[in-house]
Computed example of a mutant assay.
Amino acid sequence: MARRGKDSRLLLSLVNEDRLRAILARMLSETEFLSDHGIRSLSKIHKEHPVSMDVNGQHYSVSYIPGDSDSGLFGGNSNWRGPVWIAVNFLLIESLLRFYMFYGNTFKVECPTGSGDYMHLGHVAEEIQHRLTHLMAADKDGKRAINDGNAMLDHDPHWKDYLFFYEFFDGDSGRGLGASHQTGWTGLMAKMIHDTGVNCRLPQTPRTPTAAASHYFDDTFIRQRRQSMSRTARPGGPARSLTRTRSIGARSDWSEKTAGTNGNAGDAGGDGDDDGFSNGAPTPSRTWSIYKDDDSKAGLPRPEDDPDDPINKFVADQLARIKSNESQEFAEEIAAQNDGANDE
């Protein structure tokens, strides 16, 4: 407790910095736990090197099995010996973000292990969320990993946009397994898409090294810095280079008029960033807005609005209607309450 982290925070953890690095070296290895679609429940190294023992003349072994269970144990319809489980991944991501809040940008690890690309723990959490998003996101050919090449589920207009929330997923291919309606924890995908989906690369595309990639955390921090700067004080050049030609965020409802003349969905100014300005000057071509007073389809309140205003207004209107006796349903109850108040 003597050491304080970023912003004087304290950290209560079962592992210290050295042990955390040792754990992450294996967890972020693509030959062990890190798959294209999240963190596996068992290291892939046990495919060739199963854990075995003999007990009372009986041989037992545990090996890496990425898909359906090969044993009737535990009901036979679930497998914790290799597949990706959203619940476990979510807890890992939450833990990484808490470590990041303590260590900040100073604690970096290789991700994936052996790639030579070092990230702080916020970026590591984001990378895992991107890989999980690839389970359900369609690639450039319209195929989703969870459908395992099923043409009807991938391309039929009556099926392709209706996704199953599977219980767990193949540790190698991402194929959906188990119950197909496990929204209890697989529904957590919605939060991951909300948090980091805007700059998630398309499935089956090469991973961009951190040095050239845009990240959710970078985007958040830089936007905050830009908002604190006056437009006249903006630097002439781009503050950050952003390329979204291979990102899920680029495949939105943005038109060429909205995106600017250079075809970059995030760069309306054509100057290499996504701030909507051309070297500090506003660009009229960017007319898209997420706010309800600019776009009736979006329906989001502006940041300065209280998000509870619609609820508060509804409650106030209902109370006013009841008190004014417009509703006969509550007239007798109100009269009885008023009589009781007068008696007191």
Rank of each mutant, 00 (worst) to 15 (best):
A265N: 05
K292A: 15
S289P: 11
D294G: 10
L300I: 14
A268I: 07
R302K: 14
T258N: 13
P303D: 05
T287D: 06
D309F: 00
G280E: 09
P307N: 09
G276F: 12
D267H: 01
D294I: 00
R251D: 14
N264K: 08
R251S: 13
P301H: 07
S289D: 05
D295T: 09
D275A: 04
G276E: 10
T245V: 07
F277T: 10
T258M: 02
S252L: 02
A281K: 11
R286S: 15
S285F: 01
T261V: 05
D305T: 01
D271G: 12
P303T: 06
T287V: 11
R286Y: 12
P301I: 06
T283N: 13
G276K: 05
D305Y: 04
D267L: 04
T245Y: 10
N279Q: 15
G280N: 07
I248C: 12
F277H: 14
A259I: 01
E304S: 14
D309W: 01
Y291D: 05
L300W: 15
D253T: 10
T245H: 10
G249K: 02
S289R: 06
T261A: 13
L300Q: 13
G260M: 04
D274S: 12
R251N: 13
D253R: 05
A259C: 12
P303K: 06
D253G: 04
G299N: 15
A298V: 05
P301K: 11
A298F: 03
K297D: 08
D306N: 15
G249M: 03
G249A: 06
D253N: 07
E304W: 10
N262T: 13
T283Q: 15
N262D: 12
A259E: 08
G249I: 00
I248V: 13
Y291V: 02
D295C: 02
A250K: 08
D295R: 10
K297A: 08
S296A: 12
R246P: 00
K257I: 08
G266V: 03
D271H: 08
D309G: 00
